[in-house]
């Protein structure tokens, strides 16, 4: 089993498009599973031309919110007065009610409530985990969060665990990470054997690339770079290439700006199918072939591009509890 994570730091630079084309290409010769690890804005199913039909969907809950037990509530209003999030309101019948969307589960209300058991803490629906099979022969594992529910490394871990349950020894798991370098991205990269970093030639994306590269160095992961829309700003694209060379990142390819990509997304057909002869399709397929070549020569590639030393870290001090 080999796990590759596609990350970029900055959003909207083409992670999902690159992931999709890599997965479709690899799936011709290998067993592939794709994980869409961006539960805030899941889009892999849309890029792959799938609707909202899932083979299975299961509720996912991890947030705790307060609920007021109406029968026990004496309507003193203490909870409403102290709630830092103003999540408690009085409904038309005069009952105190917690709005679960606003509640953060901080328990301030239950601390001040004079009646035992009138405010309980319970799990609320965070979102859905789901799986479907694509017509490219690989399954897609995805998640969807309810509005306002926080994304988390735990949810990404659940998705990756589902993928591993379905995987064989020779399966390639492609994890399309969310933007940023936070908890969910750490979770997307953790345990991955390699990373593919996507950047576009803008100062914002270049900066984000360096930040996410710190994470892959931390994990001692070999990483490769794809520059998307490189011809929008050839100067910065060249700077990114220099950065990649100087930092031992494998340069997988440069994809030109090409309106066949947004057009294909509107059509919900992967660009390599909708416009196979477009410059972007050709460049993306070349990137995917390079990834195939990496897998074919895995050990030598791994040895060559593995970071020589891990990213230095800043100190965190934890003391034993109870001391």
């Amino acid at each position: 089993m080999l796990e590759m994570a596609i990350a970029s730091g900055k959003g909207g630079v083409g992670k999902s498009t690159v992931s999709a084309i890599i997965a479709i290409t690899l799936a011709r010769r290998r067993k592939v599973i794709v994980v869409d690890a961006d539960a805030d804005a899941p889009n892999m199913h849309l890029i792959l031309g799938l609707g909202e039909e899932w083979e299975w969907e299961q509720p996912y809950s991890e947030s705790m919110v307060a609920r007021i037990v109406t029968e026990k509530c004496i309507k003193c209003g203490e909870c409403r007065a102290v709630c830092p999030y103003k999540a408690i309101y009085v409904d038309e019948e005069g009952n105190y009610v917690v709005n679960p969307v606003i509640c953060e589960g901080c328990e301030t209300c239950s601390l001040v409530c004079p009646v035992k058991g009138a405010i309980v803490r319970e799990e609320t629906l965070s979102g859905m985990l789901r799986m479907t099979r694509t017509r490219y022969g690989f399954p897609l594992i995805s998640a969807r969060l309810e509005p306002g529910r926080p994304n988390s490394g735990k949810l990404v871990t659940e998705e990756k665990t589902k993928a591993k349950e379905m995987a064989d020894d020779d399966t390639v798991i492609v994890v399309d990470s969310a933007a940023g370098i936070g908890c969910q991205v750490v979770s997307s990269l953790a345990g991955a054997n390699m990373a593919i970093l996507v950047a576009e030639p803008t100062p914002a994306s270049f900066n984000a690339l360096k930040r996410v590269h710190k994470l892959t160095k931390h994990f001692m992961q070999p990483a490769a770079v794809v520059i998307n829309k490189w011809d929008m700003n050839p100067d910065i694209a060249a700077e990114i290439e220099v950065y990649a060379r100087e930092n031992n990142l494998d340069m997988l390819g440069k994809v030109p700006f090409d309106d066949s990509i947004p057009k294909s997304m509107a059509m919900m057909v992967p660009v390599t199918e909708a416009f196979p002869d477009s410059p972007a399709s050709k460049a993306l397929l070349e990137v995917a072939r390079r990834v195939e070549a990496i897998l074919d020569e895995w050990s030598s590639w791994f040895m060559r591009f593995r970071p020589k030393k891990p990213e230095p870290y800043r100190p965190i001090i934890i003391k034993p509890e109870g001391f």
Binding site: A190, G191, H218, E311, P315, I317
Partner: peptide, 15 residues
Amino acid sequence: AGSFGPNAMTALGEM
């Protein structure tokens, strides 16, 4: 373990 996250690694090192 197979891999350690940034916070875990730092905390383990410090301790």
